[in-house]
């Protein structure tokens, strides 16, 4: 009985991290966007407009679900769900706090957590592809084509950037990767070289590449060409309405949270923060503090996402592809070679 209870508690905690932050972040996004544009933003629903996501939810649910006449009904409705599921699966292996007692704060402790996340992330594109295709609308189809081409292109660089962190930590287990960075000061964070000053350039470059590729993976501005409204109306979700559109939108935030969680874990020391968390303290309080640290890191990264979104204009498609193939891929390869050489030389 107890293992199930513990698992249940961990699952609820993990899901809460993601599902709670997702909608909440929509309001953050809208307020920040407004501030950047010299506006005030939604501030009417509840104190400071905090209940706006609830209002949005009610609106989404109460709207009519329209399925285009010639659409493939089953695939059309399946699309959003296929986009929605992967980020949730992926988040299962992200450690969202220090151990409490003997339990990792992580839904599933997989030894190959990094690989699992990567494989799961890439399945998200199927949902977009399906949705775009099943809509029987050329804009939707073009949007989903763009999305798949873009995600595949950037997955290469993303994978290579993740590889850097894996190489530094010599493990695919996210718990191990995080624990290696915890409790030893900022220098132990993989972004700063994982304890070896000689690896600092690789760490920085790797993190930078991963950050940018994550933007592209999540179809975030400046890489949101798949829903480029100037050319494609709404991109792959042109024909979607009501809650199915809501699910698409929510999935975008969920996968953002997953990406930020992954980046935090493999590069930014996960739930640890020098001077605040103590990796050897396995009490409940310490666990909660580490959780708070983790969430703060995720939220700060997401804030940067938003900040970037409202700063940069959208790239052109050729620029996007140029960057991915001609700049990021070679840079990642060179970075790996560099790190390998440094590692072999044992500097």
């Amino acid at each position: 009985m107890t293992p199930w209870l513990i698992f249940g508690a961990k699952a609820v905690g993990g899901l809460a991290c993601q599902m709670g932050v997702g909608p909440a972040f929509t309001i953050v996004e809208r307020r920040v966007a407004a501030w950047i544009q010299g506006r005030v933003g939604p501030n009417r629903v509840g104190p400071l407009g905090l209940f706006q996501p609830l209002a949005d939810l009610v609106k989404f649910i109460s709207k009519e679900q329209i399925v285009p006449a010639d659409a493939d009904r089953v695939l059309f409705l399946l699309g959003p769900l296929l986009v929605f599921a992967p980020p949730i699966f992926g988040f299962c292996v992200i450690p969202y706090g220090n151990m409490i007692g003997d339990e990792h704060l992580q839904i599933a402790n997989l030894p190959i957590g990094v690989l699992f996340v990567m494989s799961v992330i890439s399945t998200g594109v199927y949902g977009m592809m399906l949705g775009g295709w099943a809509s029987n609308n050329k804009y939707a189809l073009l949007g989903s084509l763009r999305a798949s081409a873009q995600i595949i292109s950037y997955e290469l660089s993303l994978g290579l950037a993740i590889l850097i962190a894996v190489m530094m930590s010599s493990s695919l287990d996210l718990n191990v990767i995080v624990e290696q960075q915890a409790g030893k000061g900022f220098g132990a964070w993989n972004v700063f070289g994982g304890g070896h000053l000689s690896q600092l350039p690789s760490g920085l470059l790797g993190f930078g590449l991963m950050f940018i590729c994550a933007l592209a993976e999540n179809n975030r501005l400046p890489f949101d060409l798949s829903e480029c409204e100037a050319e494609l109306v709404g991109g792959y979700h042109t024909e979607y309405s009501s809650m199915s559109l809501g699910v698409f939108m929510l999935s975008e935030y969920l996968s953002m949270i997953l990406m930020c969680g992954l980046m935090t874990s493999i590069y930014l020391g996960g739930w640890s923060f020098p001077g605040i968390t103590d990796p050897s303290d396995h009490s409940i309080l310490a666990g909660l503090i580490s959780w708070a640290v983790f969430m703060t890191k995720i939220l700060s990264m997401m804030f940067v996402y938003v900040w970037i979104r409202w700063t940069l204009p959208r790239f052109k498609y050729n620029q996007l592809m140029d960057l991915g193939w001609k700049a990021f891929l070679p840079a990642s390869l060179v970075n790996i070679a560099l790190l390998a050489v440094i590692g072999v030389m044992g500097v």
Binding site: V32, W35, I36, G38, W307, I308, W310, T311
Partner: peptide
Amino acid sequence: MKKTMEYMIRPK
């Protein structure tokens, strides 16, 4: 990004 940050904290 510097510019947008300026705008973000500026009074509305």
